[in-house]
């Protein structure tokens, strides 16, 4: 049974008065991630918004062990932490959580992540995907959606984002899931499930960013949900190669109702302000194809 909001634990690992922007989706998610792991964890974090979230010396904003590492090295650092805990006999009941942004995951960090996945290292890797380099001022990443204006794609990005969860799935790791900061219970359940699996577990989490995407901070959750309603973000999990839609995406697929047009989603954000109609059509077609792919896989007998 999926967890309900009232069943979520009140853990308090994420402290108020932190340095995140108002309305930052990371905060919503990190509260659930740390709660799901009950704080029995070591986080490792590369250069990213999360570094800033974690706070500047000598005060930390998150009450769990946290190891900062260089930008490309998250998955290798997590491999080392996991190996070090095993070698020193301290791995019992501890989860190693690597948490990096989309650039740190899909661009500069993909080599270390791919290596760790191929070795099936024992940690959870959570990518909080805010779809550009937000910490350095909204430059494009390999995860920036087509049509989005960034400070390095002034006319809108021409390419679709990488399909990072499917890249990870192709490594044959035991657990791959997608999530959204706007759906905390779905995220909580996935992290709890991942905690109980050994090997590399990958969770790719859509994380709306008010300042980078250009929307009012009050709309972080609204737009996160809207992304799921359009099918641009699909909530699912893959265990041993079997894909299952979850949460709102599962409900959407079962309902048979039409998804919200992508046009409604892009209209909410200034990054899509100068999006050409043909680009919008291309993104809609891309979303449709992907949606059909996941619905089809969801329907396959396991």
């Amino acid at each position: 049974m999926p967890t309900k909001i009232l069943d979520l634990p009140d853990s308090g690992f994420v402290l108020p008065g932190n340095r995140a922007c108002a309305g930052c989706g990371i905060g919503i998610a990190l509260r659930q991630v740390t709660a799901a792991l009950e704080g029995r964890m070591v986080m490792t974090v590369p250069a990213s918004c999360l570094t800033v979230f974690g706070g500047m010396y000598p005060i930390s904003s998150v009450g769990v062990p946290w190891v900062n590492v260089a930008f490309p090295s998250t998955a290798a650092a997590a491999s080392g932490i996991a190996a070090g805990l095993r070698a020193t006999g301290r791995d019992d009941g501890m989860t190693v959580l690597a948490m990096a942004g989309d650039g740190g995951t899909a661009d500069i960090g993909i080599q270390a992540l791919s290596g760790a996945a191929e070795r099936n290292e024992d940690f959870i890797y959570l990518c909080y995907d805010n779809e550009a380099y937000m910490n350095t001022g909204t430059q494009r990443s390999g995860m920036t959606p087509q049509g989005a204006r960034t400070t390095t794609t002034w006319a809108g990005k021409r390419e679709n984002p990488k399909d990072m969860p499917r890249i990870m799935e192709a490594h044959g790791i035991p657990y791959v899931a997608t999530a959204s900061a706007a759906f905390p219970t779905d995220l909580f359940d996935k992290v709890v499930k991942a905690k109980g699996i050994r090997g590399l577990r990958y969770i790719h989490m859509n994380t709306p960013c008010p300042s980078g995407w250009g929307f009012d901070p009050k709309d972080t959750v609204r737009l996160g949900k809207l992304a799921v309603e359009t099918g641009l973000v699909v909530l699912y999990e893959v265990e041993e190669g079997v894909l299952r839609l979850t949460g709102r995406s599962a409900a959407l697929a079962r309902s048979g109702k039409p998804r919200t047009p992508v046009a409604e989603y892009v209209a909410t954000q200034t990054r899509f302000r100068s999006m050409a109609p043909e680009t919008l059509n291309a993104v809609q077609a891309w979303a449709d194809t992907r949606w059909e792919h996941f619905v089809r896989r969801d329907a396959e007998p396991s």
């Binding site: 402290l15 008065g17 932190n18 706070g55 010396y57 000598p58 005060i59 930390s60 998150v62």
Partner: peptide
Amino acid sequence: IAISRPAAGEAGRTGDWR
């Protein structure tokens, strides 16, 4: 070495941002 301890208000009284 740089090693921080957790506390609320790392960024100050962020209620002022409001």
